[in-house]
Amino acid sequence: MSTHLFRLFVAGASPRSFRAQQSLEALVAAALPDEREVIEVIDVLERPDLAEEAGVVATPLVVRERPLPTRRVVGDLSDPFRLADALGLDRPLRSISKERPT
């Protein structure tokens, strides 16, 4: 079992969902290069029951399930430094996403 698990709640295939997933994947790839299956993406439109369970209000939402304690970050995760800080990961050395949202 990997030491980390991030659950990403998105709403359908919106640009915001896409940006969030990309940002999170890029950060995790840079910070945890040796871990596999660290990110679980859940579409709240398909699994509203899981959204209910996790108490999701705003989306996108990433929940750090492991390691404890859980941490939650809301938004399209467009700021990699703040995202890394919020999730307790190492900050990337350089800009990790070529398609930074404007």
Partner: peptide
């Protein structure tokens, strides 16, 4: 506590 990083919507709430 939820940290806010970037833009968001309430699609999660709407879906629930």
């Amino acid at each position: 506590e939820e940290e806010l990083v970037g833009s968001y919507d309430f699609a999660g709430l709407l879906a629930r």
